[in-house]
Write a protein that binds this DNA or RNA. Structure first.
Length: 454
DNA sequence: CGATTTTGACCAGCGC
DNA sequence: GCGCTGGTCAAAATCG
């Protein structure tokens, strides 16, 4: 009896495996189709905006927004289609530009409007931004953002270094002791351009000093190096998501809390946010936190994903300084947040080229293996795909507490107890970090999305 | 010597 | 109005 039961179960799993495989293949096809369409669109619509930020985004989109996804993504297609239509309706002047860029987000009213409306910058603006018409003009391109709202994107990453490497040049302009944290908070501004408005705060987590919390604010008004492009896209897109959310809501983040899928579908340009994003609805500034603290080996969700090889991007996107140290290639945006390690080995670059094809060929096998080795993951993947295919209405935002025990994600299962950070409502900053010890699966839905798209 | 960091002072917002 | 806090300035110090 028992043997037959096991056999039946095995058969069921095999069938499920086969079914999922088919779904993945379908997603792969969809991805390819979408990518081709995107290429066509970008080719047929030459630059219409001179804003360097937008230009930068456009050029980087195919790689950073799609490739880093690492896998087929029907929702991305849905996103682009939806955005293409919405763009045509709401921003006829913008053409397809916004479709390829981060759209309203990139124009980031958060900063542009801040430049004009936010009084906190008052006097400094006169001295710093007054000479930077590009900032004013370029970022005023977008009117989608509500005035006075200032989005921030917080990134949590484990790092021994005083500051994570994100590809940009920063100059420290201040340091303060923040209340409730023995570690000082450092203030940096981007120095890659004279009047670049981007600033960031760096502070170690009070609970776990190995975690470095970097908060970005603003949008670069200059071209970015490749290493920084993805980061900029990610943060700006995340910020735009917060700021361009339902206009009727006082807080876009709050609105999104109930629709995590909206985050994913509406802003697929946030390649990783769906994996570990936490939205703060009540903070002075709408803040989205990208939690990258759960590196491989820590038992965290992200590590679980990486461990399963599901976030394999094209090797070209691998951060050379980190990739060699990772069990699997890490998307550059992730890699750049990881603790800086020794310089890349000589074998890193060539190995990447060689591995590229091998990876593409073995992704399916890897996924299959992952599914086979983690039953929970199977369920998670199925649920994720189902949720994606069902549209944006089916998921729950991670910030909404999920009943304990409903551990349906393989990630959560693997990270059960340690990384299933309960971030109920996340009142202030980020509660999704590895230090969040309470159970639940607040990231259930968004992780599922990630699972299905990476 | 220019760029960057340090650090005390200043300012604005907010709560009481 | 006052005090607290976060954020920034800017002179001095330090670095390369």
């Amino acid at each position: 009896m028992e043997a037959s039961a096991v056999e039946a179960e095995l058969r069921r799993v095999v069938d499920e495996n086969r079914r999922l495989r088919g779904m993945l293949e379908e997603l792969t096809r969809s991805y390819g189709t979408l990518y081709q369409q995107l290429l066509q669109v970008t080719q047929h619509h030459p630059h219409q905006h001179q804003h360097p930020d937008l230009m930068n985004n456009r050029s980087s989109l195919p790689h950073t927004h799609l490739n880093t996804m690492g896998a087929p993504n029907t929702s991305t297609r849905q996103l682009l289609e939806a955005r293409a239509s919405s763009t045509a309706q709401t921003q006829p002047d913008a053409g397809v530009e916004d479709e390829a860029s981060d759209g309203a987000g990139e124009a980031s009213p958060s900063l542009s409007n801040n430049a004009g409306n936010n009084d906190s910058d008052g006097k400094r603006k006169l001295s710093q931004d007054g000479t930077a018409p590009s900032r004013e003009n370029g970022e005023q391109a977008s009117s989608a953002e509500l005035p006075g709202r200032k989005a921030r994107v917080s990134v949590r990453a484990r790092s021994e270094a005083p500051m994570i490497s994100d590809g940009c040049q920063w100059r420290k302009y201040g340091q303060k002791m923040a209340k409730g944290n023995p570690c000082p908070r450092a203030y940096y501004r981007c120095t890659m351009a004279v009047a670049c408005p981007v600033r960031k705060q760096v502070q170690r987590c009070a609970e776990d000093k190995t975690i470095l919390v970097t908060t970005y604010e603003g949008h670069h008004n200059h071209p970015l190096p490749p290493a920084a492009t993805t980061m900029a896209n990610t943060t700006s897109a995340a910020a735009s998501m917060l700021l361009s959310g339902p206009a009727t809501s006082r807080d876009g983040a709050a609105a999104l809390l109930g629709h995590p899928a909206a985050l994913f579908h509406h802003h697929a340009s946030i390649p990783y946010a769906s994996t570990m994003a936490t939205l703060s609805a009540s903070a002075p500034f709408p803040t989205i936190t990208l939690d990258l603290t759960q590196a491989p080996g820590s038992g965290g969700g992200v590590g679980g994903l990486l461990g399963h090889g599901l976030q394999r991007p094209p090797v070209g996107m691998i951060h050379p300084a980190v990739a060699p140290a990772m069990p699997f290639p890490v998307p550059s945006p992730l890699a750049m947040f990881l603790p800086q390690r020794a310089p890349p080995t000589a074998a890193a670059a060539p190995a990447g080229l060689v591995a590229r094809q091998q990876q593409q060929q073995s992704v399916m096998e890897t996924v299959t293996a992952a599914i086979a080795t983690d039953p929970n993951f199977t369920t998670a993947l199925a649920a994720a795909i189902s949720s994606v295919m069902a549209g944006a209405g089916g998921a729950h935002h991670q910030a909404q507490p999920t009943p304990r025990g409903s551990n349906t994600t393989g990630i959560a299962g693997e990270a059960d107890g340690s990384a299933a950070g309960a971030a109920p409502a996340a009142p202030t900053t980020t509660a999704a970090g590895a230090h969040a010890a309470s159970g639940g699966s607040p990231r259930l839905a968004t992780q599922s999305c990630t699972t299905s798209t990476t």
